[in-house]
Design a binder for these strands. Sequence first.
DNA 1: AGGCACACTTAGAACTTCATAA
DNA 2: TTATGAAGTTCTAAGTGTGCCT
Length: 809
Amino acid sequence: MTGDHGHHQVESGARLNGECEMRAEIGFNAGFRLVFCPCFCEAKRRDYSHKHKDKHKDKEHRHKDHKKDKEREKSKYTNSSNGKHKREKENGYVSHIKTEEDNGYGYSPMPEKPMKRDRDEDELEHKPKKIKVEKENKVKKRKQEEEFDYYDEDVKPKKKSKGKKDDSAGGGKKKAKKEPEEKWKWWEEERCTDGSKWRFLEHKGPVFAPPYERLPENVRFYYDGKVMKLSEQAEEVATFFAKMLDHEYTTKDIFRKNFFKDWRKEMTSEEKSKISDLNKCNFTEMSEFFKAQSEARKQMSKEEKQKNKEENERLVEEYGFCLMDNHKERIGNFRIEPPGLFRGRGDHPKMGMLKRRIRPEDIIINCSKDSKHPKPPPGTKWKEVRHDNKVTWLASWTENIQGSIKYIMLNPSSRIKGEKDWQKYETARRLKKCVEKIRAQYREDWKSKEMRIRQRAVALYFIDKLALRAGNEKEEGESADTVGCCSLRVEHINLHPEMDGQEFVVELDFLGKDSIRYYNKIPVEKRVFKNLQLFLENKQLEDDVFDRLNTSILNKHLQELMDGLTAKVFRTYNASITLQQQLDQLTNPEDNLPAKILSYNRANRAVAILCNHQRAPPKTFEKSMQNLQAKIDAKKKQISAAKKELKSAKADAKAMHDEKSRKSVETKKKAVQRLSEQLMKLEVQATDREENKQIALGTSKLNYLDPRISVACRYESEHRRVCAISVTRIGFTLVIIERHCIQMRREALETRRPCRGKVLVVHSGIWRALPHVQQLCKKWGIPIEKIYNKTQREKFAWAIDMADNDYQF
DNA sequence: AGGCACACTTAGAACTTCATAA
DNA sequence: TTATGAAGTTCTAAGTGTGCCT
């Protein structure tokens, strides 16, 4: 009922890989290439201009640019990590990929050292000249091509943006005068190349959790049935437990044990000697008090709520922003985590431990030397103030449960996060270009004489096919027992030479990140299966499946196949490509808006299933389901009543033979029909809700799907001309519509709803196009607001601004 | 080649606000 | 108007991956 169904669904329709192979087959690469230039900022420009017909010119241009940048970089940074780019060519294959990939430019693994920004600070607010010129060219070209042109509005100063909490640029971190300023388009600027993340950073430091307030006298704690007044410290920790009394956590042994141990540490020696058994503790008065308190908060008058809101806004205005390189940027988490009881996920050995209160003395501040340093609260000191512009965080502290470091960082809408996000998708797109070769290689590696290579190849196959996470090793006993691909153990895998009529079925069952269960039965190729059998030979349940492999070995190998390639890029790539393919498949331009949105969500769901993004069914789920079921039952009753009436009306009509009774039969028939339709709708709604019961769409939307794919859905574009239709030997069809390549799987065409009778028909192996095929590429005209909410639009502002209607991932 | 520190992304749960049906 | 559920937002845990040291 869980992943099983879902994964099969995905397997059968959602994921159609193998585009590169097909492209090669029909010479697609030769005819059109979506080349993104090596360095990141170049890629951006390509993004704007990838329609250019004059590829050669463009290439030259890029090349020159790049050379220039490289020289610049060299001269400035003698110790630049150029050496890193020179990778060993272990075999011809690798180098082949690279050559093809890099196109001779050597895709600088540039995340860390993007293009040099050698402009003055005060120039920052302006669009770089270079880019401006290029843009004008582009505008011209576009005009020539009579393409949709959004530079028109882009080039001239834009209409005032509607957002009130605009970036106030130019050092205007003073009180925000209500002068709506233009949103800063960082994506139109060049990026820094020297590995520094900023040049200037000023902020006010974090906001600390409010100090503990003692409970009123009438809220008492009982031990062994007797009232007991607790010391302030012990009381505070007790309230943490009391607040969680309704939570399942407090029934768990480990939680209680850990809590009690840590609680006792906070007690006075007197308390310690008295309180020796958690079971004798009675927190109910405390619990009731907090419940009443939150109830009272809900019941607050409008004015009070408003006051609170304003107070909060003031705090956000003061602490929620920083000044980074002349731009006011939102901070993601400017509040220090308050003390409480640790809530680990799954079977966490440390659940219930006391998360201690963070004080200024624990905080390391990071900011510019020449900025106004944040002031610690009166009478306190920071642990340290440093000026490290190689990192993005503003403040950090070490947490006491795992000893890990926590950071205060910027909001996803910030330049620093956005650039990284954009770059992530560009890396995934580069993978797209060489994924088929990588696949060919790992298939080849299944036959290797060396065990470690075969393990690597099979693991990579899983990561690619199933979008598994890499699976770093974890310290035992420090956290819940969860695994990813490289850390899979024998107990997580079952091999079935035959199952449900399929050969070579691998059954995976393990807890992944956040202790979310992954369950899937996958038919695999014989060679994979045989390899797995070999890997499992003579092993205990608790042994690693891939004993000669870990993530660092795997990633090193991937790095050799493509610059910047790591295991997680496959997840991004497969998620995004799946969305795009699903959208192409589900597209039905005649649908109305809700239907289109439903289709979009379905495409999104396919990705969520692929990535195994699950959620606990909402608390209210059962209830709301029951409500719906009640409606359905009521409807059913109505129907049976209506049917009865119809029956008797029919009998009447038979007996009476008159016009009136005949008419009555008709009316009753209609009523039954109408009710049945209503019932159907309700049932569909119920199915839909049920289907989404434990699937979470948000994570993939936010982290895996190239937003430009979704953005492209907003345009209603003209029909496209079909250029070619081709069948590949592996049963895919390619439909080439102008420069779009749309691939389909045979069975998908035959059975998938959007295709049925619409797009293609099959006649004894010959594919024929119907006129409707032209519609395939018509984009949907979905308003972006229907896909992304406000926060998401802020995060993806770069994509919304730059992607045009025929964006291809 | 393995361990560790660190930085940063990805993740679902919990909480808050908004929209809509009763 | 109020109650309810959905949508939006916040929170922080739990991953990935790099680079340094041994």
